[in-house]
Design a protein around this nucleic acid. Structure first.
Lengths: 139, 139
DNA sequence: CTACTTTAATCAGAGGATCTGACTAAAACA
DNA sequence: TGTTTTAGTCAGATCCTCTGATTAAAGTAG
């Protein structure tokens, strides 16, 4: 079985479960919005950075940030160090979603470890981290 | 680093490279079309099967098959065993893309093995296959 | 055999996500 | 100062995906 598909299946599973957990807790976000939201840094991020991190164009990132801003999950403030730029920041409202997502992630990892064993889980992580070195366009 | 993201990065990389290889060889397909196309079985598949395998609704699958049919990559023939159903089959034109995709995949896997080593590659595969058992909704 | 239920596929309509190209304004640089 | 780069936005188009309703064939229970 092709390794692309092998990677795709658990990846889709994680995305679905994370989103479901957050939506279930009352946060109304879509998959695409969530991908942007989770990439906003603690001190705020520029739109261009978000676009790169989420692998979309600036326009798409802007479109999604607009929606998240309107929903009250993000805010834009002027960037003091650059008059052209603005910093996108996570609001308190959105921060409440972070522990929910983290807990769901932890739960999932535990289930996985239960199924494939601690040793294989460590090996999986190691292999994926190394693959990131050659497949992640942003580093 | 969260395992969802760790899975996402190489997965995206595979999808991008596979699509690029095929497109580069003159096949004009999109990512979504490719996902459906690669799931058509050798004896043809029903639309409903394709929808399940590609994780989309029947309507979406139908929409994509329409496009692929129009482009000459797929054809629909009546299913002799069921008057309601039709079989979607890959045309000769599209079959020419298969070796191209396979070669690109093989090339990628070789590069990965080069980077992380044969042992880790085997472990990766094994762990992913086991994870599929609990994360693949279609089995 | 008839009536009900399920299944395969399509039609209609809508919303979401993404892109390319063109533009404005601020910053960096020569 | 004048040119080039960078951050972000506007406009328009396309692609992908969904929900809901419909048609027709197949399966099933009496």
């Amino acid at each position: 079985m092709n390794i692309g598909l092998l990677l795709f299946i658990p990846n889709r599973y994680v995305e679905n479960r994370m989103l479901a957990a957050v939506v279930n807790a009352g946060f109304e976000v879509t998959q695409a919005q969530a991908r942007v939201l989770m990439r906003v840094g603690p001190q705020g991020s520029r739109l261009t950075e978000l676009a790169e991190a989420a692998q979309v164009t600036k326009q798409t990132a802007g479109f999604l940030v607009d929606q998240l801003e309107q929903a009250g999950y993000l805010e834009r403030v002027p960037d003091p160090s650059d008059g052209r730029a603005r910093l996108v920041r996570v609001t308190r409202k959105a921060m409440a979603a972070v522990p929910i997502a983290n807990e769901e992630m932890a739960r999932m990892e535990e289930e996985w470890e239960q199924h494939i064993g601690k040793r294989r889980m460590t090996q999986l992580r190691e292999a994926l981290e190394m693959l990131g070195e050659i497949t992640d366009p942003y580093r």
